[in-house]
Design a protein around this nucleic acid. Structure first.
Lengths: 358, 358
DNA sequence: TATCTCCGCTAAATCGATTTAGTTGACATT
DNA sequence: AATGTCAACTAAATCGATTTAGCGGAGATA
């Protein structure tokens, strides 16, 4: 290990990095006490009750003066708790994941938990190996975001928008039936009868349920979605480009439609571009409805009507649920599903259907 | 610790979680060998050269069969390397950070490094305490993104878009002079002489240098930026709303301008909204130039002309530099600055200035 | 026969905390 | 004088790996 000096102890008291750390043992020697005593006092253990305040003060003062920082790795090994979660995600810069992550982080930092993040880029083998690495690192639980996990894990898992029923995995999902009702209902109420749909990528956990609920809601209103009016996203998910391509496919099919229900806001933005390039104006010629309500949605041109998912809340709900479980605070042993409610946000990308001739 | 069972060992061989892990010691007992031998073999140590292949095979087979997973925490404690970095960031769902983070992650995962992420929400006290927590967790180095760190750290730090010269901190920065030249030059070449500027928030590390270089580039062309044409972002950075508000301030000041150079793409999007609401069409009445080139830029309406920062590359450069340093692979002991080059991306939010009366 | 050299392996220390099970001495009680 | 109690600590085991130093025996060499 050439020239590295991570934790300079007794030797090298003024190493290249200036700040030096001491171990509990060194601090104990300095004070003429045992590590045990220091540990009890510093952790405010009930066993420290018989230690006089004066000694405690001495210990605190010395700890501060010598810049004592407990080694979290050593502690984790001994107490067998790392206060660390693993998070698996397809890709960080994906808007959806970032918003969920924000909620997760907010809940975790309050409780002194950190997390290790691993992206699997939609590859099952990477997901699997990432999970293994996280477990080797002794994460106490895992939060999966938009990732499909089928095997029973050795630590508790909460899956945000997971749909597989696996024992030991709690799924946090949107109420998709309601979301589809809101979305299709909104378009239907505006007079739209020929509705096109862009499905999500095959690797996306929500793809199937979102499509099915939308198809059902449409069928229930007597306007089943024609196969020629269904397109699907393919490839990478962070850029609107996939929505653009999917919409071009739709247009090329030649089947007319007056409304488009996109898989998410990002693809809706791409869809709008494709429609306008084809000479169709949004919302006058075609209404476009997004899904998610990402930050950019309100500021797009036109501002996007969308089905809002409470992603931040779903993230923090996932985190809180997992922490409760780890701390044994939950009454119920296992919660298979937690549901979140969508909202319809009407902006300006949807409008009443054009009357003939008008 | 009520009812938790993290690592079930000899007892509870079929615990509630099904999958059981064994320690090196247990594996050794199972094989009738010592932990030393297993460790040497499993780590492919040179000291294992005298161990016959047959024994090695037995060990590998047993490790696989009993699902042996080395405890990374124990290993870290012993070898005093955690293979973990700390990353401090203002906020994850911020587009800028997310793109940099993507680059960081790509470089780290290749090298078997993980990272702990902490957001400080632009609060100095949170930044400070997060840094302490990360150090307690024995991170080997820190990557700071758009965060100002003034104190000399006890581990190597690389700061993406840091501008303070601090010993021990390597700054990865954009070539801002060039960026300003590209941006102002583009607007100037289109005929714009009255250019408004939206400065970044005070807490943003790039705010000052970006403003100064832009002001210089304008002055050098004989068109110094009038104070009434300068506005500043305030508050939270993830939503275009701050750009919207800043632009309204600008419009309220009443000083005419034909081009607007925004601090970043997100605020440019908000600016466009404000301009259009005021009856000004982009780019016909006002050209708007963004900064960053986030994914949404190309798909906005109108597509955003912008100064592209190679954020992914800056992230991975930061990570690689830090890893090299940690592994002692770098010749030079300390690199104070690494520079990245911007690009001008011309789309449709900028256009030649309107002629009078046309 | 004595010594040397490998082979194949292991004992024990170590990383830096936490935690269990005491110990020591002062003082009070009977 | 013997016993008990309490205050103020501490020795040593432990978490699960890695690593240094070295041991016993077989065969080779002198």
């Amino acid at each position: 290990m050439p020239g590295r000096s991570k934790n300079r102890n007794s030797s090298d008291p003024d190493g290249p990095n200036g700040i030096l750390t001491v171990s509990l043992k060194q601090l104990a020697i300095h004070l003429g006490l045992s590590p045990t005593t220091l540990s009890l006092v510093l952790n405010d253990s009930p066993n420290a009750s018989s230690i006089p305040q004066e000694t405690k003060d001495r210990i605190f003062a010395a700890a501060k003066k010598l810049n004592y920082r407990p080694n979290h790795v050593a502690r984790s090994l001994r107490v067998r708790r790392t206060h660390t979660l693993g998070i698996v995600v397809s890709e960080i810069s994906d808007n959806y994941s970032a918003m969920v992550l924000n909620g997760v982080e907010a809940a975790l930092s309050k409780k002194g938990f950190f997390y290790l993040l691993a992206s699997h880029l939609h590859r099952d083998d990477l997901l699997e190996s990432n999970l293994q690495l996280l477990l080797e690192r002794q994460v106490e639980g895992v939060i999966a975001i938009n990732s499909t996990i089928r095997e029973r894990p050795s630590v508790p898992i909460v899956n945000v928008s997971g749909h597989e029923e696996v024992d030991g995995i709690t799924n946090v999902t949107l109420n998709h039936e309601r979301a589809a009702e809101l979305g299709v209902g909104h378009l239907y109420d505006l007079g739209h009868r020929r509705i096109a749909v862009i499905k999500g990528q095959n690797f996306s956990a929500d793809t199937n349920i979102r499509w099915e609920t939308i198809a059902n809601a449409a069928a229930a209103r007597g306007i089943p979605i024609k196969p020629a009016l269904v397109s699907q996203l393919e490839g990478d998910m962070r850029s609107p480009e996939v929505g653009y391509t999917a919409t071009q496919t739709l247009l090329a099919a030649g089947e007319k439609f007056t409304a488009l229900f996109a898989f998410n806001d990002v693809s809706a933005i791409g869809a709008i571009r494709a429609l306008e390039e084809a000479g169709l104006r949004v919302p006058w010629d075609v209404s476009v409805l997004g899904f998610d309500d990402i930050y950019a949605a309100a500021y797009h041109n036109p501002p996007l009507s969308t089905i809002r998912q409470p992603l931040f809340e779903m993230g923090s709900l996932a985190a809180k649920t997992l922490l409760n479980k780890l701390n044994g605070e939950t009454e119920a042993d296992f919660i298979p599903v937690l549901s979140a409610e969508p909202d319809l946000i009407v902006r300006q990308s949807t409008a009443p259907v054009k009357r003939n001739g008008k």
